[in-house]
Simulated scan of single mutants.
Amino acid sequence: MATNRPHRLVGFLESRKNLTGSACGLAGVVLTLTGLAGPYWPVVVAGLYGAGALLAPPERPAPPDFPDPSAQLEEVRGDFGRLRGYLADVELPPAAEERLAGLTGLLAGLLEPGWVAEVLAADPEGLHAVSRAVRQDVPEAVDAYLRTRWWTRLTPGQQPPEAHLERQLALLRGEAERLADRLRDAEARRQESHTRYLEDRSEH
């Protein structure tokens, strides 16, 4: 506890309350030197200091320094590169391979550096959806298939694991397509708004 006292003292000396109170107290000293405070100058100086300290805005802690959307997008892009390296070493049935290629192609288009990625970075929900697909959904679907396929070989006759994998990849592709449609619609609305703005401006 004792080691924190010097830090607290320095913090108080640098606080808005102390600085504002000191400035008001200095004004009281000026009044004293000019003779306006009279014999009650200690009360005037102390009163002005207290009034300044009360009027000062309260201290507030700085908000957390979270990475901005562009930095988050770069992290997701790097993770997507690692995911593609993992998928390159995985052997999947042709139908599942085709569905996976369609999904990863769509994700690659959304993450491609340029204006499309900038639109994605400005959409927190969309960026979260892509991040979840890259970091969780796709690797989990593929890994679960590989694990289940091994067990199916020991106990044949069960539902083929590739059926679940194909269904999962189709669902993920649908989510990615809906996201792309939503981002496209946002750009279309932006274009329409600019048209209306130019039309309204030409009428005046």
Score class of each variant (00 low, 15 high):
Leu110Ala: 02
Leu110Met: 10
Leu111Arg: 04
Pro113Asp: 12
Gly114Phe: 04
Gly114His: 07
Gly114Ala: 08
Trp115Lys: 07
Val116Ser: 03
Val116Phe: 05
Ala117Ser: 13
Glu118Tyr: 10
Glu118Gln: 13
Val119Trp: 06
Leu120Gly: 03
Ala122Tyr: 10
Ala122Pro: 02
Asp123Trp: 01
Asp123Glu: 09
Asp123Leu: 05
Asp123Phe: 04
Pro124Tyr: 02
Pro124Ala: 08
Pro124Gln: 05
Gly126Asp: 04
Gly126Ser: 06
Gly126Lys: 05
Gly126Gln: 01
Leu127Val: 06
His128Trp: 12
His128Phe: 15
His128Leu: 14
Ser131Cys: 10
Arg132Asp: 12
Val134Met: 04
Arg135Met: 05
Arg135Gln: 08
Asp137His: 11
Pro139Arg: 09
Ala141Arg: 05
Val142Gly: 02
Val142Thr: 02
Asp143Ile: 09
Ala144Leu: 15
Ala144Glu: 09
Tyr145Val: 07
Leu146Trp: 09
Leu146Tyr: 06
Arg147Gly: 15
Thr148Met: 08
Thr148Ile: 06
Arg149Asn: 12
Arg149Val: 12
Trp151Tyr: 14
Arg153Ala: 10
Leu154Trp: 15
Leu154His: 10
Leu154Pro: 10
Thr155His: 11
Thr155Val: 15
Thr155Asn: 09
Thr155Ile: 10
Thr155Tyr: 09
Pro156Tyr: 06
Pro156Gln: 09
Gly157Val: 13
Gln158Leu: 12
Gln158Tyr: 10
Pro160Tyr: 05
Pro161Ala: 08
Glu162Thr: 06
Ala163Leu: 13
Leu165Thr: 07
Leu165Tyr: 01
Leu165Val: 11
Leu165Gly: 04
